[in-house]
Design a protein around this nucleic acid. Structure first.
Lengths: 338, 338
DNA sequence: ATCAAGATTGTGAGCGCTAACAATGATTTC
DNA sequence: GAAATCATTGTTAGCGCTCACAATCTTGAT
C-alpha cells in the first residue's frame, strides 16, 4: 500500500522522509551544496529516483525570486529571419540554463507589442527580448518601465543601449560596392516598407554608398517584403536605364527575377540582382542569388548573451552590432555592353 | 519618504494596505470574485495602479498548481513548416490565456527529445506539445511517464491518441492523381529521409495511388529535404522514361527544377514537377510550383486545442487529422508527346 | 582527556499568493 | 422586533521550496 497520496507529485518532504533526512538536506543535495556526506547524498539520490521526484519549479522560483525563464516577443515568427533568430536565442538560452517563453506577433505595431509584453509579464520571467523592427514598436519600448531587464533586437546600426542589431547599412554598401565593381553605373533599389527600420537602413546604405562612389542614384521602388510585391515591381521597372537592382530581401528578389524572366530578360546577362538575407533556398533560385547574408542565429545568441549579463548584473563586453557578409553567386555579373 | 522598501516589487499586502482592506480582498478583486462592493473594488484598483502592482506569477502558480505555461519541443524550428506550426500553436495558446515555452531541436533524435523534455520539466508547465517527426522520437515518447498531459505532432495518418497530424498520404495521392489526370504514365518520386515519418507517408501514398490507378511505379529517389539534395537528384535522374516527378517538399523541388533547367529541360514542357508544403515563395519559383499545401498554422492550433482540453479535463471532439490540399500552378502540365 | 575548529545535519521562518472558513454587517421575513 | 438570510470582509493555513541560523557530531591538536 502506498505511503502517500498519489494524486499529487512527491515533494521534497517525501524524499526526505524516504531517505531518512531532513528536507533541507535534500535541498542541499539538489543544489550541490558542500558539506554533504557521500553516504547521505547517495541515499537521497536513491530516494529521488525511487519516487521519481522533481523539484517544484514554482516553489523554487518563489523562494529564489528567479524563474530562469526569459520572454521573447518575435515579430513575423513564421519567416526565415525571425524564426532563426529565435532558434539562436533559444539555443544560447539553453546553454545558460534558461528557457524561452515566446510570443509571436504578426503585426509589429505599438499596441501589439504592448499587449504581448502584458501577456508575458503575467508569467514568471527574469528578462525580456523584443524584436522591434518598426519605429512605433521601438518608441513604445523606450518609455516603458518594466520590472525586468530588457534587450531590444532593432535592425539599425545605431548603438543604443540594450540593443543588438545587424549592420544593415553596411550590408547595403557591400551590395552596392560589388555592383559598382562589376561596372554598373545606374543601380536601382527595391526597398521594404519605410516604417521598417531595416528597410530604411538598407535604402540609406544604398544611397550613401552610391554618393560616396560618385555614382548617380538609380530608381527607388518600394515593396512590402513579399515575393508578390517583388514580382509586381519587376513587371513595372524601367530597365532601359538600369543594369542592376539591389533588392531589400531575398523573397522580393525571387519575385522580381521571375517577372524579369517573364519579360524575356536574362539575369545577370541583361540585369544584375542582389538580394538581402541569404535564405537557404536563395542559392537554388534561378539563377542562384547574390545576396547579403545576415547571421540571424548569431543575432539571437547575441541578444541572449546581453540579456543574461544584465540579469546577472555583469558588464557586457563585446559588440552589439553584427556584421553581414556579401555572398556572391550567379545573379550578378558585369554590366552588359549595349 | 517612501512607505516601503523599493528594492522589491509591491506585494498584494502592500496594495491591501494602500487600499485599506485585507490582502484577500485584493485577491478577490483581481480574480473577479462576486460579492465585492463597487466602492472597495474601485479603491483597490486605484491602489494597484498607483503602486504599479502585478501579481507574482510564481506565488500564484504555487498556490493554484497551475502555471498557464505550456512547453513545446519543435524540431527544425528554423524551417517554414515548424516555425509556422509554432506560430499557430502560440496564437491559439494566447487566446486561451496560455503562454508557450519553446525548445527548438536541430536534430530530431531520441536523446535530443528526451533532453529537451528534461529541460522543459525543470520549469513550471501545465502541458507539453512535442513534434516527433522520426520514429525514434515517437518511440521515446510512447513509453515516457510525464507529470503533465502530452500532445504529439506526428506526421502520420495514424489515429493514435494524443496525436495530431496532417494526412501526408492523402496529400501524396492528390499529387499523383493530378499528374495521372494530366496524362502522365511514369511518375517518379523524390522522397525525404525514410526515417522521417512524413517522408514515408508521402512515399507510400505515391506508391499506393499509382497502384490504385493501375499505373506502374516510377523511379524512387531519396533526398534529405534540402534544396542541395534536390539539385543533385535532379542532375542524376533519368528523364527518358519519366515525364513527371512528385517531390516530397518544395525546397527539394526548387533544387530539382534548377538542375533540370541546367540540363536544358523545360518545366513543365518536358517534365512536370509537384512539390509538398506550399511555402510562400513557391508560387514565385520559376515556374510557379504546383504543390500540396499543408496548413501548418492550423496544425499548431489543433495541437494546442487538444492539449488544452486534456489539461482542463474536457472531452476533445473533432478530428485530429488535417487534410492537405493540392495547389495547381505552372510546374505541371500535360504529358509531352514524344 | 579537552577544547576549538570544522564538517554535517536539522529547525524555523518566509517567499506571495489562493482557498477554506469565520466573522461582521445589512437586509429581509414573519 | 427577532431570527434568518445574504452580501461583504477578514483570518488562518497552507502551496513547496530556500535561506539563515542553530545544533550536533567529528576530528586533531594540545
Amino acid at each position: 500500500m502506498p505511503e502517500r497520496n498519489m494524486t499529487t507529485p512527491p515533494t521534497m518532504e517525501d524524499v526526505a522522509l524516504a531517505a531518512g533526512v531532513s528536507h533541507q538536506t535534500v535541498s542541499r543535495v539538489l543544489n550541490n551544496h558542500p558539506h554533504v556526506s557521500e553516504r547521505t547524498k547517495k541515499s537521497v539520490i536513491a530516494a529521488i529516483d525511487k519516487l521519481g521526484y522533481r523539484r517544484n519549479a514554482s516553489a523554487r522560483s518563489l523562494a529564489t525570486r528567479s524563474s530562469r525563464i526569459i520572454g521573447a516577443v518575435i515579430v513575423e515568427l513564421g519567416q526565415y529571419g525571425p524564426s532563426n533568430t529565435l532558434l539562436g536565442l533559444q539555443q544560447a538560452a539553453l546553454e545558460d540554463d534558461y528557457i524561452v517563453n515566446v510570443v509571436g506577433l504578426t503585426s509589429p505595431g505599438s499596441t501589439a507589442v504592448r499587449e504581448s509584453l502584458d501577456h508575458l509579464l503575467g508569467h514568471p520571467l527574469d528578462g525580456i527580448i523584443v524584436v522591434a523592427p518598426v519605429d512605433s514598436a521601438l518608441d513604445t519600448l523606450k518609455d516603458l518601465k518594466l520590472p525586468v531587464p530588457l534587450v531590444i533586437i532593432a535592425s539599425g546600426s545605431t548603438q543604443e543601449p540594450n540593443t543588438v542589431s545587424v549592420d544593415q547599412s553596411l550590408g547595403a554598401r557591400l551590395a552596392v560596392r560589388h555592383l559598382i565593381k562589376e561596372g554598373h553605373e545606374t543601380i536601382a533599389h527595391l526597398s521594404g516598407p519605410p516604417d521598417w527600420i531595416d528597410a530604411r537602413q538598407r535604402r540609406d546604405g544604398w544611397a550613401r554608398e552610391l554618393a560616396a562612389l560618385q555614382s548617380a542614384p538609380g530608381q527607388l521602388l518600394e515593396g512590402d517584403w513579399s515575393s508578390e510585391s517583388g514580382y509586381q515591381r519587376g513587371l513595372e521597372i524601367d530597365v532601359s536605364s538600369t543594369s542592376a537592382i539591389f533588392v531589400a530581401n531575398d523573397q522580393m528578389a525571387l519575385g522580381l527575377m521571375r517577372a524579369l524572366h517573364e519579360r524575356g530578360l536574362n539575369v545577370p546577362g541583361d540585369i544584375s540582382v542582389v538580394g538581402f538575407d541569404d535564405q537557404p533556398e536563395s542559392s537554388y533560385f534561378y539563377p542562384p542569388l547574390t545576396t547579403v547574408r545576415q547571421d540571424f542565429h548569431g543575432l539571437g545568441r547575441l541578444s541572449l548573451d546581453l540579456l543574461v549579463s544584465k540579469i546577472e548584473g555583469q558588464e557586457f563586453t563585446g559588440s552589439t552590432l553584427v556584421a553581414p557578409a556579401l555572398v556572391i553567386r550567379d545573379s550578378t555579373g558585369p554590366r552588359p555592353q549595349k
